[in-house]
């Protein structure tokens, strides 16, 4: 066997040395038997760095966090306090608001899925300009929530362009980000604006697997667009729809921090809190890591429940058809 194969195998040499150095040594001293062993170990060597990082910085912290959530903060640091943190959470009006807002997000979820679904249907049916629409709609999805939030800070300011526009048709002004009853809808609206393109692209990938002859057959039988969507498109795309439901919900629960941080800082009057923002405040501002860990655990459970619930509901709906 050519020995040059045992020189550092990974092109970016300076970082490759730690992994490949040991192998080089081994091969130099080794006989054929040794070589066989190194080959057998190769899969483990290749996967070890990834596994180490995932275990040390994702799985271990998850366990550590659950453990934290049953200990105290401040003077009680490290001592077991049972469910005290969880009870405190349930008593905290800010956390209650955060949970209520999660409920609101769940209620708005069908809208956030239906909009891109409908738009994808039209694009699939080749509405004039469908290529252009596709690239324009997808584009906000690549922007950071921070950029989106900053842009909408300008657009939604009390003396900003949206109110000026409404003023010309005799409406408003609305205090988009300053009115507790309005701000949460404004933020969710911006979140949907920023992410519907992502779901749209996923839907279009689903459409690519759709059997076009089914739609043709429906049309020949005189089905209206609504009937085609209901009886052909939705059942055929149930996998994709499930995926979009789950990913949109996960997105709403875990990727709105940037928007909240830039647009409202949880205000006005704490009305735009979400669990992730609550965790950030308790950890970073209030120095209550154990309480924050309890909130993290609750968030994790919510995500688990929502994910499983949605999958089972959609499965049942799919079966009835």
């Amino acid at each position: 066997m050519p020995t040059r194969n045992t020189s550092p195998a990974v092109r970016p040499g300076h970082l490759g040395r730690t992994v490949e150095g040991g192998k080089k040594e081994r091969a130099r001293h080794g006989a054929a038997r040794r070589r066989g062993r190194s080959e057998r170990l190769a899969p483990y060597v290749l996967i070890a760095p990834a596994v180490l990082i995932i275990v040390a910085l994702r799985l271990y912290p998850l366990a550590l966090g659950v453990n934290f959530s049953f200990t105290g903060d401040g003077e009680a640091n490290g001592t077991a306090v049972g469910f005290a943190n969880y009870l405190e959470l349930l008593d905290d009006p800010l956390f209650q608001t955060a949970l209520a807002n999660v409920g609101l997000l769940v209620l708005l979820l069908p809208v956030a899925v239906a909009i891109p679904g409908l738009l994808a249907t039209f694009i699939y049916l080749k509405v004039p300009g469908h290529r252009f629409f596709r690239s324009v709609y997808f584009f906000p999805a690549v922007l950071s929530p921070v950029i989106v939030g900053a842009i909408f800070n300008l657009m939604l300011a009390f003396d900003g362009p949206l109110n000026e526009l409404l003023g010309t048709i005799g409406l408003g002004p609305v205090d988009w980000l300053g009115d507790p009853g309005v701000a949460k809808f404004a933020v969710v609206g911006v979140q949907i604006w920023a992410t519907f393109g992502m779901a749209l692209v996923v839907f279009l990938a689903g459409f690519a697997t759709l059997d076009a002859s089914l739609l043709d057959a429906a049309r020949v039988d005189g089905a209206s667009l609504r009937q085609s969507i209901w009886h052909v498109i939705i059942p055929s795309l149930s996998q994709t729809i499930q995926f979009v439901f789950v990913t949109t919900m996960i997105g709403m629960l875990t990727s709105m921090f940037g928007l909240l941080y830039v647009m409202t800082s949880g205000g006005p009057e704490g009305s735009t809190y979400l669990p992730e923002y609550y965790i950030w405040i308790q950890q970073g501002q209030m120095n209550r890591p154990a309480l924050a860990s309890a909130a993290s655990t609750v968030l994790f459970l919510i995500m688990l429940v929502v994910g499983l619930l949605q999958i089972s509901v959609l499965r049942r709906a799919g079966r009835e058809d």
């Binding site: 910085l57 912290p61 550590l64 965790i279 950890q283 924050a292």
Partner: peptide
């Protein structure tokens, strides 16, 4: 690895910053 995919950062951010 798939399971780790579903752990959001918010859930581990407190212990991770301590680590």
């Amino acid at each position: 690895c798939l399971a780790a995919l579903f752990i959001p950062f918010q859930v581990i951010m407190v212990p991770l910053s301590r680590v």
